[in-house]
């Protein structure tokens, strides 16, 4: 199939942790999304079949979680927190700045497919607010200037083959 050996190993291991197959759905969806980039129709069909669910049940779960997506997004998913701590420390300015700089809005992707932007709820980094998360990496105590540097870094990295 289209999953890596690493995914298959994780999936096989996951099945041993739960009493029923369907219980592995949420972690499995996350692993699949990390690998494929998003939860395509093919991924949904494949996982439904593997876990004895119908596709509708898989879609019901995907739609419940905001971090699971069914459409491709940028290589770097900029998640800007605007919950209370970050908001007080300038999270909303950061979000506005990102929108302006990247030319995209909430849940949108740049035409070159490098960046996506998302306004998110608390990412658990209140002590270092304002904070953002890019894919799984955190960037903390940000200002507009620091934000530019972070974005530029990723832009440079983007040119490289990951």
């Amino acid at each position: 199939m289209f999953f890596s050996d690493e995914f298959e190993a994780r999936f096989a291991d996951m099945l041993t942790h739960y009493p029923t197959r369907r219980s592995t759905l949420v972690p499995t969806l996350l692993y699949a999304q990390d690998e494929i980039g998003y939860l395509s129709d093919e991924v949904v069909a494949e996982l439904a079949q593997r876990l004895d669910l119908n596709e509708l049940e898989v879609r019901n779960v995907i739609s419940y979680y905001s971090m699971l997506v069914t459409k491709p997004r940028g290589k770097y998913n900029i998640q800007v927190c605007t919950n209370i701590a970050c908001m007080l420390k300038g999270g909303e300015e950061l979000l506005d700045h990102c929108k302006h700089k990247l030319g995209i809005g909430h849940k949108e992707t740049t035409p070159d497919g490098e960046f996506s932007l998302e306004e998110v709820e608390c990412i658990g980094a209140c002590s270092w607010a304002p904070a953002i998360q890019v894919n799984y990496d955190f960037h903390e105590n940000l200002t507009v200037q620091k934000m530019d540097e972070v974005l530029d870094d990723y832009k440079k990295k983007g040119g490289e083959i990951l």
């Binding site: 119908n54 596709e55 509708l56 049940e57 879609r59 019901n60 739609s63 419940y64």
Partner: peptide, 20 residues
Amino acid sequence: VWALGVQNRGVSSVIAPNKQ
């Protein structure tokens, strides 16, 4: 038959058919 489900959550919840 299990052809209907619930998608999204909270105020955005919506009844969904099995073939999207």
